[in-house]
Amino acid sequence: MDIPPLAGKIAALSLTALPVSYVLNLVSELSHPLGVVLTSILILVLLLVSVRSLSRGEISYDPLYAVFAVLAFTSVVDLLISLQEDGYVVGFMEFYTKGEPYLSTAHGVFICYWDGIVHYLLYLAMAGAIQKRKRYRNLGLYWLGSFVMSILTFLPGNILGKYSSEIRPAFFLTILYMLVPCWAGVRIFKQSQAPICYTPNMVQEEHRKSLLQRPVDLALVIYLILAGFFTLFRGLVVLDCPTDACFIYIYQYEPYLRDPVAYPKVQMLVYMFYVLPFYGLAIYALIFPGCSWLPDWALVFAGAIAQAQFSHMGASLHLRTAFTYRVPEDVWAPVFLCNLLYALSPHLLASRCLWRPTFFLKPQSPDLMAKHKKLN
Rank of each mutant, 00 (worst) to 15 (best):
F154V: 14
F154H: 10
L155W: 07
L155V: 15
L155Q: 08
P156C: 05
P156M: 09
G157A: 08
G157L: 01
G157F: 02
N158P: 02
N158G: 10
N158F: 14
N158C: 11
I159C: 15
I159N: 12
I159T: 02
I159A: 14
I159Q: 12
I159S: 10
L160R: 10
L160K: 07
L160E: 11
G161N: 10
G161W: 03
G161F: 05
K162M: 05
K162G: 04
K162I: 01
K162D: 11
K162C: 02
K162N: 05
Y163Q: 15
Y163G: 13
Y163C: 14
S164E: 06
S164F: 06
S164L: 02
S164G: 11
S165D: 09
S165I: 07
S165M: 10
S165H: 12
S165N: 08
E166M: 12
E166P: 04
E166F: 13
E166K: 15
I167H: 06
I167Q: 03
I167R: 06
I167T: 08
I167Y: 05
I167C: 04
I167A: 00
I167M: 07
R168P: 03
R168G: 09
R168W: 11
P169R: 06
P169M: 03
P169N: 09
P169W: 06
A170T: 07
A170W: 09
F171V: 04
F171P: 07
F171Y: 15
F171K: 03
F171A: 05
F171M: 05
F172V: 03
F172E: 01
F172L: 02
F172H: 05
F172T: 03
F172G: 07
L173R: 09
T174E: 14
T174Q: 14
T174D: 15
I175E: 10
I175Q: 03
I175K: 03
L176Y: 07
L176E: 01
L176V: 14
L176C: 13
Y177A: 15
Y177C: 14
M178Y: 05
M178P: 04
M178R: 02
M178W: 04
L179A: 10
L179M: 13
L179K: 12
L179S: 13
V180W: 01
V180A: 01
V180P: 00
P181A: 02
P181C: 00
C182L: 06
C182D: 09
C182H: 04
C182N: 05
W183R: 13
A184I: 14
A184T: 15
A184P: 07
G185W: 00
G185P: 06
G185N: 03
G185I: 02
V186C: 03
V186Q: 00
V186N: 01
R187G: 02
R187H: 10
R187W: 08
R187M: 08
R187T: 10
R187I: 11
I188L: 08
I188C: 07
I188Q: 08
F189H: 00
F189C: 01
F189E: 04
F189Q: 03
F189N: 00
